[in-house]
Design a protein around this nucleic acid. Sequence first.
DNA 1: AGTTAGTTGCACATATGTGTGCAACTAGAC
DNA 2: GTCTAGTTGCACACATATGTGCAACTAACT
Lengths: 207, 207
Amino acid sequence: MEEPVPSPRKRANANRSRILDAAMRCFAGDPDASMGDVAKAAGVVRRTVYAHFPNRDALVEGLADEAGAALAASVEFPEPEDAAVALAAGVLRLGPVSDRYRVLLSFARKEVGEERISELIAPVRTHTYGVVERGRAAGVFSAYLPTVVLVGMMEGLTIATLEQANRGVVDDASGAMALGVLVLAGVAPDRASEVVGSARRWLQITA
Amino acid sequence: MEEPVPSPRKRANANRSRILDAAMRCFAGDPDASMGDVAKAAGVVRRTVYAHFPNRDALVEGLADEAGAALAASVEFPEPEDAAVALAAGVLRLGPVSDRYRVLLSFARKEVGEERISELIAPVRTHTYGVVERGRAAGVFSAYLPTVVLVGMMEGLTIATLEQANRGVVDDASGAMALGVLVLAGVAPDRASEVVGSARRWLQITA
DNA sequence: AGTTAGTTGCACATATGTGTGCAACTAGAC
DNA sequence: GTCTAGTTGCACACATATGTGCAACTAACT
């Protein structure tokens, strides 16, 4: 309910954002970068970081919140009827945001708990799970593996591809991811490219 | 060329192994566990660890060496003719050893360099790459994605499944991995289970 | 001009990990 | 028995990160 307060605060809020941003970048390079590193990367003094976040955990928690919100938002979009197209569209939409917060997975065990991470990506996971189940019922996907396992594989495949992309091995990461996920779900490789095309069109229309 | 030296050394060598083993377990739980933690886990005093490994890096390097050797060994086995069966057999063989050293990936960026890790899994990677290419030439795999990307996805899929297995979500991790990898390569899901069966038989015969 | 929120720069206590040095101990080898 | 390699238990110096306290500074708002 904080009304738009004047402007000594403006810089303050801006700094908060810059710190979160810098923290993201730092932790991407080294999961346990120091508060000093983050401060430097944010163009701020260490003491200032503590003015915004009482301690390291709070900072990480801030990051996790951002990530959670973005991930949750990424699955709230009109769903194509065809489950295959829906799955592809989901992957295509998730690509960028997922890359931004891929880092969080790297300090899963420590900083944030394993279960907190699960909590964060839960929306995406359940959404994917639903689409896969739906596609199976409709006969467009195969049921050669339990859905949970399959979804887990999709996650792994996804982050692996994102890492490759960050290393410049692949250009169209989202497209590749979508193809891989579809084929893994049991869609025939030739059919998969068509589906990705449809998904692309769908996203362009709805966006 | 060290001849079988008496036995004050016996305990020494045994300890070295126990330390490496403990280090593996510790680092699995927390990528930057302290030397003290490792020592405790090995049932040894911290000072003794330093008697075997001059510093932390040396210890990690020892781990990396073990891992490298095991990984390299895992791809040296008679190759089935059918590329699909070969791919499945490779995954099945790799499963256990890969799980043992999956941890190394978790401190890729820091302790060991990114490129050192690449170096370690290079044998497996090139082997997989070769099998995939061979399968494509024979028409049993599809070429809907560049081979490098595909192999990268397979790696991601694999470790994701291993993590699920370690959390008890899936029982037959190796089998699931093999299925996933085959389907991802473009083998039809129904055909995939047969292939895995063949691979299992092959491994039983040759082993 | 004066108030005020935010920033800066420094100093400090605290904690934790690393690597080393040294003397005492143990149990086989000779 | 004595020698010897390996282990133990402590002590130390050193480095690095955390979180706090405080006084000085800045710039906008009243």
